[in-house]
């Protein structure tokens, strides 16, 4: 089976989207032709349109920006829509991650992707809405399906099974198997503050007003 993956992260280095793609790739098994396209340079020319048109499955992994699809991916979706009609039935799956704790906050972007499928004539498969996206890399060494990775592990397995069988499934929303209040405190002390200090800032500078 030919699987084309669009990594919708704008980051040049590691990203949660990349990690999610790694998780799915680990589940789909060998013998499949998987092509991964990064769009951090923004332009559709970096995506092999011929390859995509010949795919059985199209998987999008991207971060949620301001409650919806990030602008750089939106531009590429518009370009892809112009390629229609697609001669074969292509199933579309998505893994969308956001910075908030609740995976449910990805619901609007999922609906947008479904509208894109309608407009493009592709068949909707399934989506996972992942919460606490920035936490994922911190717990990447914990096996999927265990501890804080319990929920995402179950979701990845379900989506991968449907993807392999080209089946549709209900959208899944997950947050880490971890207390929200603890995640909220950790976000400040283990994520924002160390990064600010690394940039030579004091913690009070983070609340700086520009006026």
């Amino acid at each position: 089976m030919k699987i084309s993956v669009i990594n919708g992260s704008p980051k040049k280095g590691k990203s949660t989207s990349e990690l999610m793609i790694k998780y799915i790739s680990s589940q789909v098994g060998e013998g499949n032709d998987v092509s991964i396209y990064g769009i951090n340079k923004g332009a559709v020319k970096y995506v092999n349109l011929k390859d995509i048109k010949n795919s059985d499955v199209l998987l999008f992994a991207f971060p949620l920006y301001v409650d919806s699809i990030p602008s750089h991916l939106l531009q590429i979706l518009i370009e892809l829509e112009k390629q229609k009609p697609f001669s074969k039935e292509i199933m579309v799956y998505c893994i969308i991650n956001n910075g908030f704790f609740e995976g449910e906050q990805n619901h609007i972007a999922i609906k947008q992707m479904k509208l894109w499928c309608d407009a493009t004539g592709l068949k909707w498969g399934q989506a996972i809405g992942v919460g606490a996206g920035e936490m994922m890399s911190f717990i990447a060494d914990i096996p999927l399906g265990h501890g804080p990775n319990k929920n995402i592990g179950i979701a990845i397995k379900r989506l991968s099974n449907n993807l392999m069988n080209k089946k549709s499934g209900e959208d899944i929303f997950v947050s880490p198997n971890w207390p929200r209040f603890l995640w909220k405190i950790q976000a400040s002390f283990f994520f924002w503050h160390p990064r600010a200090r690394k940039n030579g800032l004091k913690i009070r500078h983070l609340k700086r007003k520009q006026i």
């Binding site: 704008p10 951090n40 600010a196 983070l206």
Partner: peptide, 16 residues
């Protein structure tokens, strides 16, 4: 230019 997800507006040049 598109946002590059660097969080610089929060942890490098806060507010900008």
């Amino acid at each position: 230019k598109n946002c590059i997800g660097c969080f610089g507006c929060w942890i490098k040049t806060p507010g900008k």
